[in-house]
Design a protein around this nucleic acid. Structure first.
Lengths: 204, 204
DNA sequence: TAGATTGTTAATCGATTAACAATC
DNA sequence: TAGATTGTTAATCGATTAACAATC
């Protein structure tokens, strides 16, 4: 049975299960045991069973898990709707989202097409939100602008932020909860650089 | 005193300390206590002191930490060399790295400039590596190509991978350790979408 | 010196792993 | 039925927090 509240570490692992199961399904695999999935993913079988049982008993004793069904179940949990695999790098639709507008303050970019969407001047943002009620915003802007723009967007009804500015967004709203995923690619790069520098430090 | 091996959770937090301290320094702050830094970063003072003491005692009892010094120390730990703030979104130099080559299999893109570097056809990759000995590679390619290209790059001497393909790279090398930072923006987006769907689930 | 705040040890908490009864 | 493998409880491990003596 689904628990009251799922820990963040569990949720963060779900998309990875989703990816692996999608791949296995594509390869024609019908069933898989927690032991084998664990091997492939570099986890323990226990952990996989624990994780999945946060959401429900998707397996069958003596058999394992049906790949297609488990993939679909996790897709449902994560809110992935049926969607065509169209776009390029980040396939929004495949992940249950639809890219409906792109804005830039640099007018030289406006009018150009990105992933099938025309770039609009930032001045049109307010009218666009009033007309289309977007629920999520992707911020790829300098950190100096991130705070103000995010607050403006909250006023315009945006409730989720995928934030790539080098700034830790923390947003409040009286009525509703605002959710933020801060990506920080710079931090990721520095973590990698640290590893590079300390390569071979660990004896053994 | 620096510990033998630092846990990954600690290392992942260091770039964030680095960012915050850089900002505080820029604002002219001279000293800061673990308590105040904790408040600003949304952590506990204990955790900050524990984290920093993995690398050494940078503070002073009764005083706190010198912002500039601590920032510099963490920069040193993370391997950030002096570097001019030039490029746009990901400022490699600011993070101790230098972008020296970009390759694409799409010949239409070759010849164009990105962040001051000319895009080369992928066919030139091998000659480029022989001449320049790059130590890190950033992979923004379809997952079908990631595995093979990464192995080719290991043969060409690359020892660190910043991997954006939707594929979990795991690389081995007899002599040297290969380090990989798998980014998975798709997973990040799905985590966000989950939160959006379950907004307000948590009572209170 | 007295007050503040670190560095560090001990206690707590949460997440991962192990074990095993339930059951397909 | 016997074998396999889950779902779930208990044990372990690691990370975070609390406490406090050291000391600036």
């Amino acid at each position: 049975m689904a628990k009251d509240s799922i820990s963040h570490s569990v949720i963060r692992r779900m998309p990875r299960y989703y990816r692996f199961l999608g791949e296995l399904e594509r390869q024609g695999m019908i069933r898989i045991s927690s032991r084998e999935l664990a091997e492939r993913m570099g986890l323990t079988a226990s952990q996989i069973r624990q994780d999945l049982n946060c959401f429900g008993g998707f397996g069958q004793q003596g058999y394992g898990y049906n790949v297609t069904e488990l993939h679909a179940q996790i897709g449902k949990i994560l809110g992935v709707h049926a969607g065509k695999a169209i776009a390029q790098h980040i396939d929004f639709e495949k992940r249950g989202c639809k890219l409906i507008g792109i804005f830039d303050s640099n007018h030289a970019l406006c009018g150009k097409q990105i992933a099938g969407v025309t770039v609009d001047p930032i001045e049109n943002l307010e009218a666009f939100c009033a007309a289309n009620h977007p629920v999520m915003a992707v911020l790829c802007i300098p950190k100096t602008a991130a705070h103000d723009l995010a607050h403006q967007l909250v006023k315009l009804g945006v409730r989720a932020f995928w934030n790539f500015s080098h700034y830790d967004l923390r947003l409040e709203h009286e009525q509703e909860q605002i959710i933020v995923e801060n990506v920080h690619l710079g931090d990721s790069l520095m973590t990698l650089a640290y590893g590079l520098q300390h390569q071979g430090d660990a004896h053994e």
